[in-house]
């Protein structure tokens, strides 16, 4: 069996009466992009919070980079970075200051150099000394992702990385995520967009009503569904066709 970046067994979590996770099980191999797909309220964020040590499960086990998320939380935190649903950047600091701060908190030797490299890589060098409050949505997200890369953690969690972005911003994030995956990093992302999972992920799991109801590669998932059928559907003319037809008749006259 290849090395597993994430292993989850029989995970349960309830908020009072509400059962959010009811026996979630899955594993993610090292170096993969794993997409957790599910509608709003399916428990995606709860799961990501448990895996990133922000929340304790009621029962079950979760190993991240081989460490238990409860018993070895500090070691898990050394192995991961988390990018939440909303760009978690400091508005009053500049882009550079944000990155330097994270580099210092990760106890890196040369925080300034690390910051400058990432600014360059994410196309933020020009905006580096501007306060983040003046950044556009796409720039914030890029800075957010850059902050996740400080200290090169082997496992990266991205919670709905493209929610709230315009189409251009989405494409930008997709490009970055694909780059991140190079170099053996494991990426665990959640999304509610099917095309996003299709575009990015090697492996997809579908979370529904607190359980993983399907998981595998895109090809494997496609096999689960009935094969494509041929159907005959009466096609109504479009306004364009009507218009062209009328014009054509007139010309004939």
């Amino acid at each position: 069996m290849p090395d597993m970046a994430i292993q989850v067994r029989d995970l349960h979590k309830s908020y009072r009466q509400l059962k959010v996770l009811q026996g979630v099980e899955f594993a993610v191999e090292q170096g993969r992009i794993f997409a957790l797909l599910g509608p709003n309220g399916a428990g995606k964020t709860t799961l990501i919070k448990i895996l990133s040590t922000l929340l304790k499960p009621d029962s079950g086990t979760a190993l991240v980079n081989g460490f238990d998320v409860i018993a070895q939380a500090a070691r898990v935190r050394h192995s991961i970075s988390l990018t939440g649903q909303f760009a978690a950047v400091d508005e009053l600091l500049t882009g550079r200051e944000n990155l330097i701060m994270i580099a210092q908190l990760r106890h890196l030797k040369q925080p300034r150099r690390v910051a400058d490299e990432l600014l360059e890589r994410f196309g933020l060098t020009e905006a580096a000394n501007r306060r983040v409050s003046a950044y556009s949505g796409g720039m914030r997200r890029r800075l957010d992702l850059a902050m996740s890369l400080v200290g090169t953690p082997p496992i990266i969690f991205l919670d709905e990385p493209t929610t709230g972005l315009d189409p251009e911003g989405r494409l930008e994030v997709w490009k970055v995520v694909k780059e991140l995956a190079q170099g053996g990093r494991t990426i665990f992302l959640t999304t509610q967009y099917l095309d996003e999972a299709e575009q990015l992920a090697d492996r997809i799991a579908i979370l529904h009503q607190g359980r993983i109801i399907a998981s595998g590669t895109l090809q494997e998932l496609k096999k689960l569904f009935p094969p494509a059928r041929v159907e005959y559907v009466e096609k109504q003319p479009t306004l364009e066709e009507i218009f062209l037809a009328i014009i054509g008749q007139k010309e004939v006259c």
Partner: peptide
Amino acid sequence: QRGIMDRFRSMPI
């Protein structure tokens, strides 16, 4: 609210 607390809490600080 902005999630920066969660970012810090998921780091080894």
